[in-house]
């Protein structure tokens, strides 16, 4: 068959798209159960870490048990969207999943606070695709640990601040990541917005 004829080109492109599309789809569907399991494990692990639960073993079952034992999972509606919401059964901790756009890609994480919403107990990043070595450092412990015991100033415009401020009271300020001011700003705005929305809807309950 003539390789320059339009019909050959058409058949070839359809064929090759089909073959590769099929290959990717089959790999995707074959591994889907594993992917979902991994995803659930990652989420449970992050939730456990955020609530500082004692989990004996690093297995999916151990995390599941710990969460079933200590955490009550609920959901509240924020801006017509369901947001996952967690309560600690024994301590006065509550937490929820926050989401937003980072520098270019979405960021999500879990924030845990005391029941009066006065301070942050812990913060963990669930998903992020920021620049490796720069923005991606938001999930490193030295950064997230700064949020522990951080005050939330509900009366201020900026409930929490990442970076510099002229206010001498630094109780709601964490240090920014050098060279990643865009990611830091995005995270700060996303947290402030998510917190404000959460408080509005949480009080209504």
């Amino acid at each position: 068959m003539d390789k320059k004829s339009p019909s050959y080109i058409l058949i070839f492109i359809v064929l090759i798209s089909f073959v590769f599309g099929l290959a990717i789809s089959s790999v995707h569907y074959l591994t889907l159960p594993m992917l979902e399991k991994n995803e659930a494990l990652h989420k449970n692990r992050i939730i456990s870490q955020a609530f500082m639960l004692d989990v004996e073993k690093d297995t999916p079952e151990a995390y599941e048990d710990a969460i079933r034992q200590f955490i009550k999972i609920d959901s509240i509606e924020i801006k017509r969207e369901k947001v996952e919401f967690f309560r600690h059964r024994e301590k006065d901790y509550i937490g929820f999943i926050f989401k937003g756009l980072g520098f270019w890609e979405p960021i999500s994480g879990i924030i845990v606070m005391d029941r009066d919403l006065e301070k942050i107990i812990n913060l963990k990043i669930l998903e992020q695709k920021e620049t490796p070595g720069l923005g991606a450092r938001i999930e490193e412990p030295w950064f997230t640990e700064q949020f522990q015991q951080l005050a939330i100033k509900w009366n201020d415009n900026q409930k929490i601040i990442i970076g510099a401020t002229s206010n001498p009271d630094k109780s709601n300020v964490v240090e920014t990541i050098t060279g990643a001011s865009q990611t830091s700003d995005a995270l700060m705005n996303m947290l402030n917005e998510n917190l404000a929305e959460f408080k509005k809807n949480y009080k209504d309950k």
């Binding site: 492109i13 798209s17 590769f20 599309g21 990717i24 789809s25 995707h28």
Partner: peptide
């Protein structure tokens, strides 16, 4: 429900 194919689809759309 084929969102996972987006990258390869976009590439083909652009090239085509």
């Amino acid at each position: 429900g084929l969102e996972f194919l987006k990258l390869i689809t976009f590439i083909v759309v652009i090239a085509a």
